[in-house]
Design a protein around this nucleic acid. Structure first.
Length: 863
RNA sequence: GCGGACGUGGCGAAAUUGGCAGACGCGCGAGACUUAGGAUCUCGUGCCGCAAGGCGUGGGGGUUCGAGUCCCCCCGUCCGCACCA
């Protein structure tokens, strides 16, 4: 038998061993083998949707990171819940199935098998007995069950609302799935269209979704994004009268103090008041409304364009003034810079103190009044500039002279006293559009009765299974594919009469991921989504790792569902994910020609660090960008594992840089990680012998006091372990691996001094990062059991310090020498030694000040 | 435009509270062992300079004995949001 490092043999052996012994399986409370004395740790990855192209090395960054955490936590004595599953329903999976001409169910089976294989290949220590698939009826039964709970609480409703419709995808999309008027998936154009849809009342939880962000350990950037998305703003609702009518025009404003400066009103083109437009202005308004409706959202929201609008012929009366006071008579315009869906869809325009109103007033020559005087030194209307900050109220009757904050308060009181206004809080957050006219999703557990009533399907009749359909493609007219499954849709009574029709929409891809972390706690439960005992033990997720791309959608939806479940008494925490961490994006090199066009990697030639296009010989520029299939810069982990091994891949992924950073993959650099693994191997094993271990490691040395090189290595080892421990604080495992490399370098210089105990502890510390080779070496030390649950080696502070300290000596802040002094040397002694170390720099000078930082440095200030 | 993150050698990156800038690795150079080397080992490697020394953390100012780190201004990159009244 060869004793050379053979990654394929080693990794295959240990993969098999872990699988056969179900080593990473963790018991639930009440199950055999459950140890209640151990603390729990739930570390979760954002589960993937299994695409047809498989995993690339970028997907693995986060998974390797959480695996390292999970493995260390086990060694620290925790019961570790570390599961994996598949977010299988949804648009991308369905689009892929259509593109490849397969049934989504079949494609999913193939894809998940491939993902599972790849994840196992990398040695990720998931408890595979907990694997879940959101498209499995045993799973989505409970997604439907939870939907029912939302429905019963009045949090799900049907409404005819203007929604995003994507002609290419033949479905409606949520606001969050449309970016600049194009679908997030596939970049297809989308238009607004009124359609009857299922909505979830996430707005009812807006305040709690906002407030509870304060108690969780999440990146500030994600919290900020969620806060902005929820978009709370405090202000007032004000009722304006409409001249010649009993109608009231209600507006929302954050600046009720500027009421005295309102010189016109603007309503959105969709506003109901436009039905009242007099005949004299009807044609112009209708034309404007039609034009606005025809515009794409991109055109409407383009900030660069000039504001447009038309006068409606209507006048409003500003409640700040007495009826009949001409200052209170203001024209009502309609313009598309006012959004129908926010506030009341109407505004009071205060052109003196709002940039947008100012621009509009300037364009249409409407009057501009100053009602807020800016603080001294700031420019205001007197300088021809619109001032929108805080100042002092002027020209404002009863609130004259008040500072903005007080003026707002007083204005609201005055309006409230007269019954024409009140304080109001508004959120940008809209209710969540929850239905899709697509096939590959959870059917709604709802029945439409002939009399128009809607009833829920009995819990006992769940799941409502998705019927098999040969042709599941979206219909050209936008109707749901499920509507074509007649036998499934129509429910007949014993006499064959139509008793009810099933709802034919399906839930969006986000549904399954709104509660999956809970199912992982008790995945096989057939009588409940999870048991109380499992949830109270495992919840909440201690560490949740995934891409920042999910900052708003998934993480907001998931928090929303979790809070509903909390209100139902089904979970015991307000928040699902105590700590969130975003791993950085893995980028890769790509090549650009002179025109900036990207050239696929296959067409690029490397000549002495310069890059040329194959064939034409055109010189190319190397850039760093996302991995993308079209650019041919996607790296498949299968290839890396085959050539270098999973341990090397894991080490390289972590060694590149901090987990949170974006960083470029560079295949050239992998060899450093591979060499490290081989150096570790040779430190313990002699490749030229047939022995399991190097002879001096094969026997236990006497427990004599360490001295000489062995003592030095002991210190080095404790330093390395301390640095590894520290790296878990902010997941900069690159420094952990650097520490391990440093130890191996030191040990390789004195191979005979390394003790068996040191080598064993080193292998344990290495194991979270490179588990296969660590297991192999551990076994060679004669251990029969895996190291996965061995205690994590402790750092002894005594070994972190030396007897002597090297202290840098500066003159005028510049390094001029170094001295070695005994630990704990007196200050005078240190200064004397320091002076002696830099004689030429002190010669002929006067030392005016000596700065001594104990054990750190000495700095002489000279003149 | 607003909000957030960031900018350090040829490359990926290190650097408790302000205290030796560039750890660790890639690449590169020299040497050793070799029939050979995409193996291994040793030494070197921020820039300028023969050297003494000087200069260096995007640019400019400041605070300090001392600044990658703190403050002000500017430039650039990436990521969100985008007329939200």
């Amino acid at each position: 038998m060869s004793n050379a490092y053979d990654h394929t043999a080693i990794e295959t052996r240990w993969r098999k061993h872990w699988e056969e012994t179900a080593l990473f399986r963790v018991a639930n409370p009440g199950e055999p083998g459950f140890d209640a004395k151990r603390p729990k740790y739930y570390v979760l990855d954002m589960f993937p949707y299994p695409s047809g192209s498989g995993l690339h090395v970028g997907h693995l960054v986060g998974y390797v990171g959480t695996d390292v955490v999970a493995r260390k936590k086990r060694m620290e004595g925790c019961n570790v819940l570390h599961p994996m599953g598949w977010d299988a329903f949804g648009l991308p999976a369905e689009q892929h199935a259509i593109a490849t001409g397969r049934q989504p169910r079949d494609a999913n089976a193939v894809n998940t098998a491939n993902y599972r294989r790849q994840l196992k290949l990398v040695g990720l220590s998931y408890d595979w007995s907990r694997e879940i698939d959101t498209s499995d009826p045993r799973y989505y039964k409970w997604t439907q069950w939870i939907f029912k709970r939302l429905y019963e609480r009045g949090l799900a409703y049907q409404a005819e609302v203007p929604v995003w419709w994507c002609e290419e995808l033949k479905t409606v999309l949520a606001n969050e799935e449309v970016i600049n008027g194009r679908s997030e998936r596939g970049n297809h154009p989308c238009v607004r269209r009124p359609l009857k849809q299922w909505m979830l009342k996430i707005t009812a939880y807006a305040e709690r979704l906002l407030a509870d962000l304060d108690g969780i350990d999440w990146p500030e950037s994600i919290k900020t994004q969620q806060r902005e998305w929820i978009g709370k703003s405090e202000g007032a609702e004000v009722e304006f009268g409409v001249e010649g009518s009993a109608d009231r025009l209600v507006v929302f404003t954050t600046r009720p103090d500027t009421l005295w400066g309102a010189t016109f009103m603007v309503v959105a083109p969709e506003h109901a008041l436009l039905a009242r437009v007099p005949a004299s202005h009807r044609a112009a308004v209708d034309a404007y409304v039609a034009a606005a409706a025809a515009k794409s959202e991109l055109e409407r929201t383009d900030l660069a364009k000039e504001k447009t609008g038309v006068f409606t012929g209507l006048y409003a009366h500003n409640p700040a003034f007495e009826p009949g006071d001409p200052r209170g008579r203001v024209p009502i315009w309609t313009a598309d810079y006012v959004m129908a869906g926010y506030g009341t869809g109407a505004i009071m325009a205060v052109p003196g103190h709002d940039e947008r109103d100012h621009e509009f007033a300037t364009r249409f020559a409407l009057p501009i009044l100053e009602v807020v005087r800016p603080p001294a030194g700031e420019k205001g209307l007197a300088d021809g500039v619109c001032f929108s900050g805080d100042g002092v109220a002027v020209n404002s009757g009863p609130i004259e002279g008040l500072a903005t904050a007080a003026a707002k308060q007083k204005a609201i009181e005055l309006l409230a006293a007269r019954g024409v206004g009140k304080a109001r809080v508004t959120y940008k957050l809209r209710d969540w559009l929850f239905s899709r006219q697509r096939y590959w999703g959870e059917p709604f557990p709802l029945l439409h009765l002939p009399d128009g009533r809607i009833v829920v399907v009995d819990d006992a009749a769940l799941p409502v299974e998705l019927p098999a359909m040969d042709d599941f493609k979206p219909a050209g007219d936008g109707s749901a594919p499920l509507a074509r499954a007649k036998h499934w849709v129509e429910i007949r009574d014993a006499h064959g009469a139509l008793a009810a029709r099933r709802d034919t929409d399906t839930m969006p891809g986000w549904a399954g991921s709104c509660w999956y972390w809970l199912r992982f706690m008790d995945p096989a439960n057939a009588s409940a989504p999870w048991s109380h005992a499992a949830e109270t033990y495992w919840g909440p997720v201690d560490l949740y790792v995934g891409g920042a791309a999910h900052a708003v959608m998934h993480l907001l939806y998931a928090r929303f569902w979790h809070k509903v479940l909390f209100d139902l008494g089904l979970v015991h925490t307000k928040e699902p994910f105590q700590r969130l961490f975003n791993q950085g994006l893995l980028t890769a090199f790509a090549y650009q020609d002179a025109t900036g066009r990207l050239v696929p990697n296959a067409d690029v030639e490397d000549r002495d660090g310069k890059y040329f296009k194959r064939g034409s010989g055109e010189e190319l520029t190397q850039i760093v960008t996302k991995m993308a299939k079209q650019l041919g810069n996607v790296v498949n982990p299968d290839d890396i594992v085959a050539e270098h091994g999973a341990d090397t891949l894991r080490l390289y992924e972590l060694f590149m840089g901090p987990l949170a950073d974006s960083k470029p993959w560079n295949t050239r650099d992998i060899s450093g990680s591979r060499r490290f693994v081989e150096r570790v191997w040779r430190l313990v094993v002699d490749p030229d012998s047939r022995d399991a271990l190097r002879p001096h490691l094969a026997v236990d040395q006497a427990r004599a006091e360490l001295s000489g090189d062995a003592l030095e290595l002991e210190k080095q080892l404790h330093r390395a372990i301390a640095r590894v421990d520290a790296s878990f604080g902010s997941f900069n495992f690159n420094t952990a691996i650097a520490a391990l490399m440093t130890f191996v370098n030191e040990a390789s210089k004195r191979p005979q001094a390394l003790t068996r105990s040191q080598a064993e502890r080193f292998v344990l510390v290495l194991s979270p990062f490179a588990p296969h080779v660590a297991e192999e070496l551990w076994a060679r030390f004669g251990h029969e059991r895996s190291l996965a649950y061995e205690p994590w080696p402790a750092v002894d502070a005594r070994f972190l310090e030396d007897d002597t300290i090297e202290i840098p000596v500066q003159v005028l802040g510049k390094l001029r020498g170094k001295v070695v002094v005994p630990k704990g040397a007196a200050e005078a002694e240190i200064v004397a030694a320091a002076r002696a170390a830099v004689p030429t720099w002190l010669e002929g000078k006067t030392v005016v000040k000596t700065i001594v930082v104990p054990a750190k440095l000495v700095n002489f200030v000279v003149r």
